[in-house]
């Protein structure tokens, strides 16, 4: 769970897809020209590169490429943000995600099916969300475990003294042995 703008990701993918399809149509013009109406052909003529570009056109093309590279790299390098070390901000103090991990681990210590607990804070739409990852043993009794996780998160929130938006993910623990907090 990151702060990536998912709608914008999809808009960008759609634009790239449409751009590629337009490129495909331009490349396939010898086959498609007899099938396409005149107005479409005149639009496609605008997208056909000049066969012998002059120096100015080459510099414009190079600048356009540089701009595309900068935008593409800036987009790629700014993905996945939103995770914060500080999971909770209260008036006057802040609570580190490690504190929540310790509280959640302690609250779930009696659950035999729980192998490992970790938590992290995320900034989402101007607010903070706590994500607790609970790794469970294969064949865990979920009918018992899910209410236990609910109770553990209630205990954690009571000890913090705030009602927090908490999402807990139950995932398979694989071969991990149980980590203990004594």
């Amino acid at each position: 769970m990151t702060r990536s703008n998912r709608t914008l990701n999809r808009v960008l993918l759609a634009l790239i897809g449409l751009g590629l399809l337009v490129g495909a149509v331009l490349a396939a013009r010898p086959v498609l020209d007899p099938l396409l109406p005149e107005p479409v052909l005149s639009v496609l003529d605008l997208g056909t590169p000049p066969q012998d570009p002059d120096t100015t056109q080459l510099w414009i093309a190079a600048a356009a490429c540089a701009l595309i590279i900068v935008i593409a790299l800036a987009w790629v390098l700014t993905r996945g943000r939103g995770r914060t070390r500080t999971a909770v901000v209260r008036p006057g103090d802040e609570i580190d995600a490690k504190v929540l991990t310790a509280l959640a681990t302690d609250a779930l210590r009696t659950q035999h099916d729980v192998l490992h607990v970790a938590s992290a804070g995320y900034r989402l739409r101007g607010a903070r969300v706590v994500r607790v990852q609970v790794e469970v043993r294969p064949g865990a009794d979920l009918g018992r475990l899910v209410p236990a996780v609910d109770e553990a998160m209630a205990v954690m929130q009571r000890r913090v003294g705030l009602e927090l938006p908490v999402v807990a993910q139950l995932s398979a623990g694989g071969n991990r042995t149980r980590s203990r907090v004594d």
Binding site: M1, R6, R10, L12, L13, A72, V76, V129, Q169
Partner: peptide, 29 residues
């Protein structure tokens, strides 16, 4: 907030697909 976060956990962000596409675009560029 929980509902929004849960929805994000249950659906792909498409960030990887966009990143791969943009890296290819950048290399071509």
């Amino acid at each position: 907030m929980r509902r929004i976060a849960a929805r994000r956990e249950r659906h792909s962000s498409r960030s990887t697909a966009v990143s791969v596409a943009l890296v290819l675009v950048a290399l071509g560029g």
